[in-house]
């Protein structure tokens, strides 16, 4: 495992820890999109099906379990925890996220590495992950008051796939791995969707101002 991959995974883990910290310590999910969190549950559930069939490493198995358990528990907190759920911005979080699922699935049926159940679901999870942040970005744009934990959560979540892009370049060059257009292009799209957010995040960080996205 190269340094970019490890940094990417750690950033991903960090983003989830930041979100859980917000939920546990502030007992709040204000500014967090349940739609995006539900999409992540679907992403992880379809991608990590192989947890029962294929063993890669202890690291790989533990990380998969962590991502599955944390994504399910975040959705549970937002839907069912009696304090946390009252802080959910239901009226602002109106992105019709189901409309992302069907096109991603159809695309995975059409464009995949191999036409098997596992490979199609794996591909679907990559396509869906690329766009899963959209409801969250829309909600942020509508939020007049983005707290630091929410801003940092989205920043780390975006940085993770960006670091994976370097991991793929490294693997292609150093390990002479195959061309892997499906994850590469999905990852590129995923990172590009954050471009606007990154711009305003870094700008507000430099000026030591509160993060606010233009409507």
């Amino acid at each position: 495992m190269n340094v970019f991959r490890l940094a990417g995974d750690m950033t991903h883990l960090l983003s989830i820890m930041v979100l859980l910290l917000k939920i546990h310590s502030m007992k709040s999910c204000a500014g967090i999109s349940l739609k995006t969190q539900e999409l992540y549950v679907l992403v992880f559930a379809t991608r990590y099906l192989d947890i029962f069939t294929t063993y890669f490493s202890f690291y790989n198995t533990v990380m998969k379990i962590v991502f599955l358990v944390t994504s399910f528990s975040i959705v549970w907190y937002m839907r069912h925890h009696k304090v946390v759920r009252q802080t959910y911005d239901r009226d602002q979080d109106t992105f019709r996220h189901h409309l992302l699922v069907i096109p991603c699935f159809l695309l995975a049926l059409l464009i995949n590495h191999r036409f098997t159940v596992r490979e199609v679901l794996w591909t679907f999870s990559l396509y869906l992950e690329a766009v899963a942040i959209l409801p969250q970005l829309v909600l942020l744009q509508r939020s007049r008051n983005i707290d630091n934990l929410t801003g940092n959560y989205v920043f780390f979540l975006g940085a993770y796939r960006g670091l994976y892009l370097f991991n793929w370049i490294y693997r292609y060059m150093a390990e002479k791995s195959q061309l892997r257009w499906i994850p590469w292009i999905s990852g590129l799209v995923q990172t590009a969707l954050y471009a606007d957010f990154f711009y305003y995040y870094i700008k507000s960080w430099k000026k030591r101002e509160k993060l606010q996205l233009p409507a």
Partner: peptide
């Protein structure tokens, strides 16, 4: 099962 390319990633 057979190990597919890239499935070692998260």
């Amino acid at each position: 099962g057979e190990v597919m390319v890239g499935h070692d990633e998260l």
